[in-house]
């Protein structure tokens, strides 16, 4: 039994089809990453899983059963934009949200999570006095304090500084280790690569990627060269067999055509400049994302 199953799920708003015939299976106890450009259907999909939006067509099953009130209590949901009563005190608010889900007072769990995320001294303060990062951590606690079997987080790292982002990341991984299924959406490809057991990409309402990072990269093969040289991108212009050069400043990424021989590339570059490092690798998630949803891909799609 999967934690979440979507079968041919479709949702339209007026004439705009936000999610189009989506099939998805999220295994239990994993971290599942949703990626996709803005407006591609991530939030709509998450809202349909939460039953906040009703699909026009298709079935959604959570923990093997159609979603109902009882199933919803087993899911913690953190929306993209944070929703906290600004005039409530932190501890009171967390107890209120916890009681909504769990049906009992979760004072001890609330205190434990406040300590865990270094908010212990803020329990008696009003939400309106917290910084943005602290509010986000409070929202995260509100989502997980009832110990749900599934946690759905829409953009959990947006707006967090590295310290707070690390704290949330550690908490997510700890939840996963305890058996919780975590689904989150993100625009940070690095986070998705590092944290997710499975990655799912939605583009224009349709599934375009789904699998582990290795499985996804496998689809694209080892068509990427990462190279470092003193002259940078200037020395790499017009290389034969190279589709695209992406300049990261200290390092450049080259995408090879299918007929390209990396040895020929290395020979040509060496003839132009001194090569500091040369690595044949699989494309990054970032690169794959751009290949699917970047401006060039959109041009192709339009054509």
């Amino acid at each position: 039994m999967h934690a979440i199953e979507l079968e041919h799920v479709t949702k339209a708003f007026g004439r705009t089809v936000a999610v189009d015939g989506l099939n998805l299976e999220v295994p239990k106890g994993c971290v599942y990453g949703f990626i996709g450009p803005n407006g591609s259907g991530k939030t709509t999909t998450l809202r349909m899983i939460m039953r906040i939006l009703v699909p026009d067509r298709g079935d959604i099953r959570v923990l093997g059963a159609p979603m109902d009130g009882a199933t919803a209590d087993g899911i913690g949901y953190m929306p993209e934009e944070r929703g906290l009563y600004s005039r409530m005190k932190v501890r009171d608010l967390l107890r209120f949200y916890g009681r909504l889900k769990a049906g009992r007072d979760l004072r001890r769990d609330v205190d434990r999570w406040l300590e865990r995320l270094e908010l212990g001294t803020w329990g008696g303060k009003k939400i309106e006095t917290l910084s943005k990062g602290m509010s986000q951590k409070v929202q995260f606690i509100a989502t997980v304090v009832s110990r749900p079997e599934i946690v759905i987080l829409d953009e959990p790292f947006t707006g967090l500084d590295p310290v707070n982002a690390e704290a949330i990341k550690d908490a997510i991984l700890e939840l996963r280790d305890q058996g919780t299924t975590v689904v989150f959406s993100t625009h940070d490809m690095g986070v998705a690569e590092r944290m997710c057991d499975f990655i799912f990409m939605i583009f224009k309402g349709k599934k375009v990627l789904d699998g582990t990072l290795s499985q996804i990269q496998e689809q694209y093969g080892s068509d990427t060269i990462r190279i470092r040289c003193p002259e940078g991108a200037e020395a790499l212009a017009g290389l034969p067999g190279i589709d695209k050069v992406t300049d990261f400043g200290q390092m450049q990424e080259l995408r090879m055509t299918s007929s390209c021989d990396p040895h020929d590339v290395l020979t040509t570059v060496v003839s132009r400049t001194r090569v500091q490092s040369f690595e044949i690798t699989r494309p990054s998630l970032h690169d794959i994302f751009l290949r699917i949803a970047g401006p060039a891909a959109r041009e192709v799609n339009r054509a």
């Binding site: 939460m50 906040i52 949901y77 929306p79 929703g83 009563y85 949200y97 909504l100």
Partner: peptide
């Protein structure tokens, strides 16, 4: 303030 969406995730 997006509280409604949080609540609708529970009720």
């Amino acid at each position: 303030q997006k509280i409604a969406e949080v609540l609708l995730g529970s009720i």
